[in-house]
């Protein structure tokens, strides 16, 4: 029996991209065994929430895509950074200049973006041009107390079989340019994980987070008091198993194997 399943597991947080499915052209493909693994967890009665740093589309579109791939989940059980970001902006009375994917802008629809007093950077592709980054920089440098939010801080992600630059690259760029530190909304921020834990009503010590990002999924969950399990799918690279800062509680080939181990621990 593996160590990470020895203590009770009464809640599971799942990363989406690279754990449930591999992104790619035409919406991507479900990872072998992941669809039934989610169903198995539901059958066991273990609450599941989906923690993703996905900001390249709206939450509604993301859930629709997952349903089309064959997954079943409620939209309210999916936790992407933008809704969390909107709550923070409202609470602190901030008006953002957004440098995010245009496909995700709809999720900012109820936010006042006029006369901005902070900058939000998210994962995007063509939107992350020199001109757009320069505009964000010029706004920050003109602020007396520049506030930069980053929707996650991933180094890279996998798309269509290739590793691609993630928002972290651009967060670092703006941090370096303005000599500031960004506030991260999304994984690995503890506040972000805590919102999902609260929604499940399960304590961190009884929850396992499963993801393909050794730092942001596994390390972030561990900082929060959860167990962090790394899958060898998605952006996983062999050197992640010997990461200098993070030692996963468990390493599995894929989500299906993780769920199999959880089921075995229950019997």
């Amino acid at each position: 029996m593996t160590l990470w399943t020895q203590k009770p597991i009464n809640g599971v947080l799942l990363d989406i991209t690279g754990v449930l499915y591999e992104s790619g052209n035409g919406g991507g493909n479900a990872i072998n065994g992941s669809i039934s693994a989610v169903l198995e967890l539901n059958k066991l009665g273990i609450p599941v929430r989906f923690c993703t740093n996905e900001t390249q589309c709206t939450r509604r579109k993301l859930v629709k895509k997952l349903h089309e791939l064959g997954f079943s989940m409620e939209e309210s059980h999916v936790f992407p950074p933008i809704p969390a970001m909107c709550k923070i902006l409202k609470k602190r009375g901030l008006r953002p200049h957004t440098l995010v994917s245009s496909a995700a802008m709809e999720d900012f629809s109820e936010i006042d973006c006029s006369n901005p007093n902070c900058v939000v950077v998210g994962d995007a592709t063509t939107e992350l041009s020199y001109d757009n980054l320069n505009r964000a920089f010029q706004m920050l440098i003109a602020m007396e107390n520049p506030i930069l939010f980053s929707l996650g801080k991933g180094k890279y992600y996998k798309d269509a079989g290739e590793l691609c630059l993630d928002v972290g690259c651009y967060m670092k760029a703006l941090e370096y340019a303005c000599d500031i530190e960004a506030e991260v909304v999304g994984k690995p921020s503890s506040n972000f994980f805590n919102a999902a834990l609260e929604d499940m009503g399960v304590d961190a010590s009884e929850t396992v987070m499963i993801g393909d990002d050794v730092v942001n999924d596994v390390g972030g969950a561990q900082t929060c008091g959860m167990r962090g399990v790394l899958v060898r799918t998605g952006k996983f690279r062999p050197q992640d198993e010997q990461h200098s800062q993070v030692t996963p509680d468990g390493i599995v080939d894929n989500l299906a194997q993780a769920v199999k181990l959880i089921i075995e621990s229950k019997n």
């Binding site: 980054l133 920089f137 180094k155 890279y156 630059l165 993630d166 972290g168 690259c169 651009y170 967060m171 670092k172 760029a173 703006l174 941090e175 370096y176 340019a177």
Partner: peptide
């Protein structure tokens, strides 16, 4: 900034 980002990623 771009170098710093590439270094990070």
């Amino acid at each position: 900034p771009f170098i710093s980002g590439l270094e990070y990623s």
